[in-house]
Write a protein that binds this DNA or RNA. Sequence first.
DNA 1: TGCTTGACAAGAACTATTCTAATGTGATAT
DNA 2: ATATCACATTAGAATAGTTCTTGTCAAGCA
Lengths: 132, 132
Amino acid sequence: MEKYKKIGIKLTPQRLAILDFLDGNKDHPSAEEIYREVSKRFPTMSFATVYNTLEALAERGNILELTIDPHKKRFDPNTELHHHLICTKCKRIEDVHTHFELAVPGMHRKGFEVTGNHVAFYGICPACSHRT
Amino acid sequence: MEKYKKIGIKLTPQRLAILDFLDGNKDHPSAEEIYREVSKRFPTMSFATVYNTLEALAERGNILELTIDPHKKRFDPNTELHHHLICTKCKRIEDVHTHFELAVPGMHRKGFEVTGNHVAFYGICPACSHRT
DNA sequence: TGCTTGACAAGAACTATTCTAATGTGATAT
DNA sequence: ATATCACATTAGAATAGTTCTTGTCAAGCA
Ligand SMILES: [Mn+2]
Ligand SMILES: [Mn+2]
Ligand SMILES: [Zn+2]
Ligand SMILES: [Zn+2]
């Protein structure tokens, strides 16, 4: 696809498949989920390729690495500033596209140069609250 | 110490050492840091004991497990509602004791029952910004 | 054509964490 | 005091997620 050109990495079939899987994906998939899906089309796909590609994309700001699921990294192709709501049972992650006015008061800033913030909301999703 | 009685777990020398190390600790230590420090006094200390104790404490709400450092869990003996500022270079974590009024707008709530939230501020600490 | 660069696959290595099995210990019951 | 029981502790194995290493290959270029 032409729309991936500007990323600045060499586009290979494997990478296009990864990019297509990520494009518009709102599930915040893990490396394993990406691997599972993409290796359907490319059965020789290696895990290393998934990680290498994700790292290259993250470095260039095309995806975000989320540190919100305690068991693994999850990746977000939506790099707009937004926040997340995570189900503490099944780890499903939903977007929260709301802007909050957040600033660290000087007394707590400890001389840090603050570059960003992220709000993690925790809760129980409907599916998890139904099955007791 | 008597002040640990109400936690409701059997107090052993190893556990007391862990509790003493955590008590008032503002460094958000990892399991490894706790192990390193406590095993100075108890050289036969096992990693399993550290994890078992941390799990027991977390279950009872006496410490928090922080999912904010991408490489490992960090533990916080301060269970008051507060937020954190993390240096993206050295992973130093500082407390931000400020109350923010945060709510997930209904349109993004997706039927979740929201139980809590946590703000992660990212930045560069003075030490890291000095050494280029 | 031969060189250079980067991507790929496979698997080893590594790190953090959890699990297992054997042993120890302290409290309680006899 | 002794037996019993419920947990704690230990060492190490096992697991999961991620990163590293090595050999191979293909595309772009001199
Ligand atoms: Mn998102
Ligand atoms: Mn804290
Ligand atoms: Zn759920
Ligand atoms: Zn720092």
